[in-house]
Computed example of a mutant assay.
Amino acid sequence: MRRSLMKSISTFAVVVVSMIGLGGNATLAQSYPDKPIRFIVPFSVGGGANIIARIIAQKMSDDFRQQVVVDNRGGSGGIIGTKMAVEAEPDGYSIALGLPATITVAPSLFKKLPYDPIKDLVPVGMVGTSAYILSVHPSMPVKTVKDLIWLAKARPGEINYASSAVGAGNHLAAELFKSLTKTNMVHIPYKGGGAALVAVLSGEVQVIFGSKLTVIRQIKAGKIRGLGVTSASRAPEMPNLPTIAEAGVPGYEVDVWFGVFVPKGTPQGIITTLNREIVKIMNDDDIRTKLANRGFEVRTSTPESFAKMIQSEAVKWAQVVKESGAKVD
């Protein structure tokens, strides 16, 4: 009898504790946010990631009635900023923007990555996709992708290309291009997409696989020349610009997705609140139009479907990195 009574009391205690935990989580989600949120961008000001984050942050600030502050922490191919997000308190007041370079490519590319982005970060939701445009300085005597391939083969090691950083998405896009075309162009890494683009605009470097978010305006202004887009289909904003695949490099395709993440351990209620807000923001007509004009395709998701996509992407990029032999110390 005594043993039965003690067992009943223990069971009751577990149920009560569980209910308190669930109630606390729900209360936390209902009051969230009640102070400013830090939005970590693991790249410097001036690149495509920065543009996306600031558009989201402004609308989120308005909706939440709390300031959402973009914190650009570029360096080491996005590792510095992503590590900061991993180590942040899992309370919903530190969120981060993630891209393939920092989430699905980094584990295979970097020999000594100080975190596991797939295990240490939790996907909140996808916000959309974009691509790169193979672009050159106007002084380059090339008008097409085939022209560039011919020139690069005629002058091996003499043509330089800029990237956002070692291991960045546009670095890998360029290396894939070199591999498929059997050309030799020299990699010049910069501290962020903005600095890399400035280098090409000034003629310091001749070639860049620039984010559509930043180079479309420069191409239309005649400051650089676009040769081809890295995606599988042409960019609606520049329908006369061919894909690199159709322009002479069969099988070439590189897309880049953008998504929001939080540190592992963040309450599920807060993740749900953030996902709901991101879906709302990205489906706002004004924001969709603004981003479409910059070459960005809005694509939202649930946390669960985003997590599945990341898992499959990690497998794909692990194979690509292995085949390329690329490694960063």
Rank of each mutant, 00 (worst) to 15 (best):
R3K: 14
S4K: 13
M6L: 14
K7M: 13
V14P: 14
V14Q: 12
V17M: 06
M19N: 05
L22I: 08
L28W: 09
Q30L: 15
Y32Q: 11
D34I: 05
K35S: 06
V45N: 14
V45S: 13
G47E: 14
A49D: 14
A53W: 09
I56D: 08
F64V: 12
F64A: 09
Q67C: 13
N72S: 14
T82N: 05
A85Q: 02
S94R: 05
I95S: 04
A96G: 10
L99K: 01
A101I: 03
D116P: 08
K119E: 03
P123G: 03
G125Y: 02
P141K: 03
V145E: 05
K146F: 00
I149S: 11
W150G: 12
K153C: 02
R155W: 01
G157E: 02
N160T: 02
S163C: 07
A165S: 09
G167L: 00
A173I: 10
F177A: 06
K178L: 02
T181L: 03
T181G: 06
K182Q: 09
N184G: 09
Y190G: 12
G194C: 06
V205K: 05
V205Y: 03
I208W: 02
S211F: 03
K212F: 00
V215R: 01
R217E: 15
Q218E: 14
R225Q: 11
R225A: 10
R225I: 11
G228M: 01
T230A: 12
R234E: 07
A235F: 00
G248I: 01
Y252S: 10
V256I: 09
W257D: 06
F258E: 10
V262R: 10
P263A: 07
K264V: 15
T266G: 08
I271G: 07
T272R: 13
N275M: 02
V279W: 03
I287T: 05
R288Q: 11
R294P: 05
F296V: 04
V298R: 09
P303E: 00
P303T: 01
F306T: 06
F306E: 05
A307P: 11
E313S: 12
D329H: 01
